[in-house]
């Protein structure tokens, strides 16, 4: 399918990308809530530490998403949008990996 062209098409592309960052932030929130649910319901200092670390990772992700969304908005119509810098892409991957690492360590070593 040919992508939509013109100013409206450009705006659609930017909007969709902005919403994709928002969706991913919300998906991250599910992991954060599950981590806190585990800490509150099952208890234990280690679980609370894990939940706090996951929260920090989420905060990092939100900061990256905000930076990327601001860059998309700053590009403005009708100029082309800049592609994401490796800072956003790697940072987003890194925060997800950090959450995994916290829980892998929790599952394997601390129980």
């Amino acid at each position: 399918m040919t992508p939509p062209d013109g100013v409206a098409g450009r705006e659609t592309q930017r909007e969709r990308t902005r919403l994709a960052w928002r969706r991913t932030s919300l998906a991250f929130l599910v992991a954060v809530l599950l981590a806190w649910r585990g800490a509150v319901v099952l208890g234990g200092g280690v679980r609370y530490t894990g939940a706090v670390l996951v929260c920090l990772a989420w905060a990092g992700f939100l900061a990256l998403a905000h930076r990327r969304i601001a860059a998309l908005a700053a590009a403005g119509a009708p100029g082309p949008a800049r592609p994401p810098g490796p800072a956003e892409v790697l940072g987003a991957t890194g925060t997800v990996l950090a959450v995994c690492a916290v829980w892998l360590v929790w599952l394997v070593l601390l129980r």
């Binding site: 592309q13 998906a27 992991a31 949008a81």
Partner: peptide, 25 residues
Amino acid sequence: PDYRYSLANERTFLAWLRTALALVA
């Protein structure tokens, strides 16, 4: 390349990241 394809590539990256987050959850 046409920036629209770069943005589509970025959205695909985010979709994979959401898959990873779903596996974490």
